[in-house]
Design a protein around this nucleic acid. Structure first.
Lengths: 343, 343
DNA sequence: ACTGGCACTCAGATTGTTCGAGTGCCAGTT
DNA sequence: AACTGGCACTCGAACAATCTGAGTGCCAGT
């Protein structure tokens, strides 16, 4: 088992290393922290920590550096979170106030988070699953295309075009179809709406002439497809420039940039990471190996009461975990308030 | 004036430097290119080129490297464009085929361009100015908010929420308003539609009870605002990882990443760059100084017949201009076809 | 107008040397 | 048993000295 003081030493090492970006040695620890013991004693503790693979030396004889495992233990034993600085608070406050459409809110939020943490910030768009369909529209579009527009309770507008089979849909035909679908769908949440559409499909011949079943089916399938592909799988990213801070992602920068651009990766990662709603989750170094992000740490949480959407930051192993956790939590809380109040 | 052969030497230097990423010397030129003359002669030509500041040496005695001005002349005198490789052709062909909504098309196009060029690709969303309004909708949204949805001829859906003054709009009231606005707007192009709305505003008291003028005005202003803020000012970016190719953007990487993220910058740059419709434009090195992109070159063109929208690539000074120009042109042409055919 | 030859320059690689922060270990102290 | 001081040792970083070779400018000769 790890002694009380050894753990304190670990914390000191992580702290100093994050602050100074240099391997930290026994001597500098006694200087910078008021342990009541000598350097030699610290060295012994450090030897223990090294046995447990919590810290490592870059080469024989030079200060220690936390390992992934060390960071992990550090985060897990992180008790007191530093309160946010005044600057951070006012930044969030000032950011409050005007909000207009969802895209705007997302863009600003992600930028805010990135500035607060000086890392890459990632915000997933709110999930739509639990939100009601407010309006549906079918608009004829050129030859044989129909545009389905879905307006959701939280102000999100979904669009999708469906290609129709040969026989064209008249304006009037579209009107009846729209009406019919609307009654089955409006006011329902996404899942219920989809079930409603499914019923329409099964009873299609009852409400439409047999000649047009094919037409109706293709429209319905488009609507259903659109309901299912609820676009909560969009994300906003900001602060990529922070990755270039010298010495951070030396070799793996391209990989990280690719991962960020490849939104699917991020979505999977976030999805897997944030399992328990409401909790802050961290994934450190090689824990992200599967996503090619072994050199990065991710701090994330979910931000809708209902939980399906995520936000977080991505940064180097050597990051200010305490501060970033705090910032992620604050922004999530703030976004919760903004989204619920506002709609 | 510059001699025929000197120009050829410049082309050789640019070509070799782009290919090898090493300053190129007189000797290596005679080896790699079939000039019928000796190294010493080449040296004389190079001295001339250097007098004209078209090439420079990194230090006394070591090969020459093109200057910004050299690249510029190179691009301007680029006559024969290498035909696209077979691989590139098939990539574009394969990419053809399924297209669904605009977001998808943009995402795929930008990725395609990035892969073809191995640079950062930028595609501005199609401009909406010249496109007809196909449908307009007003949807009551919570307490005192109204969501305006605008569907345009090219399949783009615009959304915007308007906050109403105290007196709420009934569902029925919205219906009449919608109808009225629709007749003024549907079928018009954006500009005409905006004029239509302006007329409605000036004659508002005629078609609405005086009690509701305030209400009507706020809705109309929202619609107008939305028409004006035609969102052609969105852009899609891909291939940021290409910036990390070793040795390319050594110091300026953060700046470049910031510029890419700051879409406003890119939009301005593109806007200024592509003046003549249909033409390929290039901006090299310090020509981009105003945007903090002195280390980058941009190759861009416009891609809608009507010209307001742009696409292009951004890369290091030392890039394959001929190939990239070719790729940009091909993708623009392709996108033209796709967008016009399809809608 | 072009060429061959020659002296000169200079970045980059290679090697050697020194310096010092940091370590492990052990005998001694509390 | 826990801590401390001391000591020999290690090894990267920093610096200096040296060497190498690609490349140049220039000039006399074809």
């Amino acid at each position: 088992m790890i002694s009380e003081r050894s753990l304190a030493v670990l914390h000191a090492i992580v702290g100093d290393y994050v602050a100074l970006n240099e391997p930290v040695g026994s001597k500098s620890i006694v200087e910078r922290h008021a342990f009541g013991v000598s350097a030699a004693t610290i060295r012994n503790d450090m030897a223990l920590l090294e046995d447990d693979e919590l810290i490592a030396q870059t080469h024989t004889s030079s200060g220690r550096v936390p390992t992934d495992k060390g960071y992990r233990l550090y985060v897990d034993t992180l008790a007191k979170l530093r309160p946010m600085t005044q600057a951070q608070r006012t930044a969030i406050e000032r950011f409050l106030g005007e909000s207009s459409d969802l895209d705007d809110v997302m863009a600003r939020t992600v930028r805010l988070l990135s500035q607060l943490t000086n890392q890459v910030a990632v915000v997933q768009y709110p999930s739509l699953r639990s939100v009601a369909v407010r309006h549906i529209d079918l608009v004829a579009l050129g030859e044989n295309r129909v545009l389905c527009v879905l307006i959701l309770g939280n102000g999100v507008v979904e669009q999708h075009t469906a290609t129709l089979p040969a026989n064209r849909a008249s304006e009037q035909w579209l009107n009846t179809a729209r009406e019919r679908i609307a009654t089955a769908v409006v006011g329902q949440d996404i899942d219920a709406a989809d079930r409603g559409v499914a019923e329409l499909v099964s009873s299609v011949s009852e409400w439409i002439g047999p000649a047009d079943t094919e037409l109706a089916l293709s429209v319905l399938s488009a609507v259903s497809q659109q309901l299912q592909a609820n676009r909560s799988d969009r994300i906003a990213v900001a602060g990529a420039a922070n990755l270039t801070r010298p010495g951070e992602f030396a070799g793996s920068l391209p990989t990280v940039l690719e991962a960020i651009e490849e939104q699917v990766t991020l979505l999977r990662l976030f999805g897997e990471l944030v399992q328990d709603e409401r909790e802050i989750a961290a994934s450190i170094g090689r824990e992200n190996e599967a996503y090619g992000l072994s050199d990065a740490s991710i701090i994330a949480t979910s931000y809708e009461q209902l939980g399906a959407s995520r936000l977080g930051v991505l940064g180097p192993l050597r990051m200010d975990y305490a501060g970033n956790i705090q910032a992620v939590r604050a922004v999530a809380r703030y976004l919760n308030r903004l989204l619920s109040e506002d709609r």
